[in-house]
């Protein structure tokens, strides 16, 4: 895949709407994430940024609009102008190319760190155990936790658990990584280790969509930034511009509270 601006966007959203019953969470989101880009989503809680992230890998179904990942519709197939829902199996197979990291880690507590990382390659991709183990050890080494391979999640700190969770997502060799407030549940002194791992990923050219409250990370690593509030994109641009010179009142008032 080339880096040129003419390439297919990794994520494209067109007037995406999502509501939970009467509650409208997303009210027409338009955005594009280019390949190899680090795309940051910021905004107050309840603004819909996490919901939008979950729509990208179809953990939530959108109600209106269109959403594409790597040129393919998310959750549907279009044929002669009609939309057909994808079967569970097809949805699952598309998710294999999209890694996701959760705020609360969601490691499997009954498996060791190594088993967590090996689980999907062995049981979804049908990779041999030996080769999955070898790759899992390399990934754990990459996130700085090779020595924790035999430990259970309950024996790891929050920061270590989150880094294992990143390794687990990378084990499927995704083309896109989604991060849902990956450092929000961590003690302040553990945040740095996780951000370092994410910075390394960005340098290796991984396409990343990051919902975050870490403005320092967004400014330093981000290629694009969107400020969301009340289900709409209020302001978009390069992180340094938006964060240092916000144009909208709502952006200004939000940033004045978090910076």
């Amino acid at each position: 895949m080339s880096e040129s601006s003419g390439a297919v966007p990794m994520v494209r959203a067109e007037r995406v709407h999502k509501s939970f019953g009467p509650l409208k969470v997303l009210k027409g989101i338009d955005l594009e994430v280019a390949p190899r880009e680090v795309f940051c989503l910021i905004g107050p809680s309840g603004s819909g940024k996490s919901t939008f992230l979950r729509c990208i890998n179809h953990l939530e179904k959108i109600n209106a609009g269109r959403l594409w990942v790597d040129g393919e519709l998310v959750g549907y197939r279009q044929h002669r102008g009609k939309l057909y829902e994808l079967k569970d199996r097809e949805v699952a197979s598309k998710r294999r190319d999209i890694g996701m990291v959760f705020q609360r880690f969601n490691l499997f507590p009954h498996m060791t760190a190594l088993e967590n990382v090996m689980e999907a390659p062995v049981h979804v991709k049908r990779e041999s155990k030996a080769s999955a183990r070898e790759r899992a050890m390399k990934l754990l080494d990459r996130v700085g936790l090779a020595d924790k391979a035999p430990n259970y999640p309950s024996q790891l700190s929050g920061g270590q658990q989150q880094r294992v969770a990143i390794a687990r997502a990378l084990a499927m060799e995704p083309k896109l990584m989604l991060f849902d407030e990956p450092t929000s549940a961590l003690d302040p002194e553990l945040v740095g280790d996780v951000l370092d791992v994410m910075r390394g990923l960005a340098e290796d050219g991984m396409t990343m969509v990051v919902v975050t409250h870490e403005m320092g990370f967004a400014r330093e690593v981000g290629d694009a930034l969107v400020f969301m509030d009340d289900g709409v994109v209020v302001e978009a641009g390069h992180p340094r511009e938006v964060l240092t010179n916000p144009q909208h009142e709502r952006t200004k008032s939000f940033l004045s509270k978090v910076l």
Binding site: N57, R95, N106, F108, A165, R168
Partner: peptide, 17 residues
């Protein structure tokens, strides 16, 4: 916890798995 189901779905695991 529902997060467990979400995490395994996000890894591309089917309902049965």
């Amino acid at each position: 916890d529902e997060g467990q189901t979400e995490a395994s779905h996000a890894l591309g695991m089917s309902h049965g798995k």
